[in-house]
Design a binder for these strands. Sequence first.
DNA 1: TTGACCTAGCGAAAACGTTCGCTACACTGA
DNA 2: TCAGTGTAGCGAACGTTTTCGCTAGGTCAA
Lengths: 127, 127
Amino acid sequence: MAKSRASQPTEVELQILRILWELGPSPVRNIHTRLNAEKGTNYSTTVKMLSVMLDKGLVKRDETASPHIYRPAMTREATGKRMLRDLVDKVYDGAAMSLVLQALASTKATPDELAEVRRLLDEMEGQ
Amino acid sequence: MAKSRASQPTEVELQILRILWELGPSPVRNIHTRLNAEKGTNYSTTVKMLSVMLDKGLVKRDETASPHIYRPAMTREATGKRMLRDLVDKVYDGAAMSLVLQALASTKATPDELAEVRRLLDEMEGQ
DNA sequence: TTGACCTAGCGAAAACGTTCGCTACACTGA
DNA sequence: TCAGTGTAGCGAACGTTTTCGCTAGGTCAA
């Protein structure tokens, strides 16, 4: 059960995911240390959040290790992509391009990054 | 000091904003007709949501008009930009470019749109 | 063995978002 | 005036997310 969860990660869940993406697979203790530094919550809360996230399939854990080791179920990229699609749907009714342009226009990009975008464009036109 | 730390619009709030962006300034009745068509909720609910949104500063209203007229407090673009920034912060810790590239790469764009992106790039490099 | 300290988890409370019932008031046509 | 119809709003109920108190069990050194 608890398989195809369609809903986005919530605020705190995302906060925890970010920590996991940074730290890599970690025991609760390490995750908590970070989370607590960011928002001062209790150890119990961290444990609970992780268990909720486990139910939802947002994280996985290795229970053979003595302090259980948690790791994100999705990469940062996959999550970002998914949330972006959701944002585009909600605000622009699916017109992704509008948002890409928006994002580009409001970003201070380095020449390197701009070149990267160009390369990507070439690739897309090549298809 | 009106707009202090305004949180992001929630799901339904956004749905209403989207309707307002499309319809332009409207009385509750029109907003409700649309919202009801989308999710079958009650008229009371629409009124309540609008009052909550008024409190939060997400919409404004003209109370001199007989059926009060509501309008969005922010443009679609400003809201999209803001939410995007938030998403970038939450997922990528502020590295906007990663997400732009992501978005671009995962979008099926028409040649016209790609040309538009190119034009924007030229502009950015021109500066 | 005992005490200090850690991990793990349950269940309930608090906080927040969403929904609607019910009430009041304004306007219109008979 | 009065019934009928529409607008406005309060307050409570409900569901979900976030928080934590409390308990149980594991490890280790004295």
